[in-house]
């Protein structure tokens, strides 16, 4: 069950609107490696995860990603607040504006809407954790790229925070993978899928 706390995990206090920056940062709202995908991926994978350390971690990181989704929404909102039509045209924001005005919509920087095709939930703990580790690195690279494109310290500070969190999550998922392997046959991790005990793969 989720409860909302009336605060952001890290402050977002942007003084200067900038629709160009908003257009790239929105990828972390609804893009392929963004926070919506991350939270949905982890919160979905946890249901069938047989190890409490790992389902606990997926719940907690999934929850934190929702808080990060909120931060990105706040950043994009503050970067586009009170824009005039001239500013919207000059900053190349007119295509987004025509469909969403100044509303926040989950899409990538390219305009592609969010899709569950961005995530995997494969029902196998090794596979799912590999997916999660890759996801954290993809998010980290995206934040690296955003940092190369923005120059306002009000924007840089929360983005740096979000980037560092991806690195910590990657570390935790690596530890979770170790816990899964400790619970499996050390001679062959792929001998069976602990999430599906009614069949046996051919591998021995």
């Amino acid at each position: 069950m989720w409860e909302y706390e009336k605060r952001l995990q890290f402050p977002v206090k942007i003084k200067r609107p900038d629709a160009k920056a908003a257009q790239v940062i929105i990828s972390q709202y609804g893009g392929p490696d963004g926070e919506l995908g991350a939270s949905l991926r982890y919160l979905s994978q946890r249901f069938s995860m047989p190890y409490k350390e790992v389902s606990g971690l997926l719940t907690d990181i999934g929850t934190e990603e929702l808080a990060h989704l909120e931060m990105i929404g706040a950043i994009v909102y503050q970067l586009t607040r009170n824009l005039t039509i001239d500013e919207i045209k000059a900053q190349g924001f007119d295509a987004y504006f025509v469909d969403h005005t100044l509303g926040i919509y989950p899409q990538a920087a390219s305009g592609t809407p969010f899709t569950a095709a961005y995530i995997a939930s494969k029902g196998d703990p090794i596979t799912d954790l590999m997916e999660d580790m890759a996801a954290e690195q993809k998010a980290r690279t995206t934040y690296d790229n955003i940092l190369k494109l923005v120059d306002d310290s009000d924007v840089i500070e929360p983005i740096k925070f979000l980037r560092e969190r991806e690195i910590v999550h990657f570390q935790r998922f690596g530890e979770a993978l170790g816990i899964v392997q400790d619970n499996l046959n050390s001679k062959n991790f792929y001998y069976y899928n602990p999430e599906f005990k009614n069949g046996c793969s051919g591998a021995k």
Binding site: K6, R7, L8, P11, V12, K13, I14, K15, E70, G73, A74, Y77, Q78, R81, D154
Partner: peptide
């Protein structure tokens, strides 16, 4: 709201 505490 927490997302509206922009700087000035």
């Amino acid at each position: 709201m927490p997302w509206k505490m922009e700087g000035n």
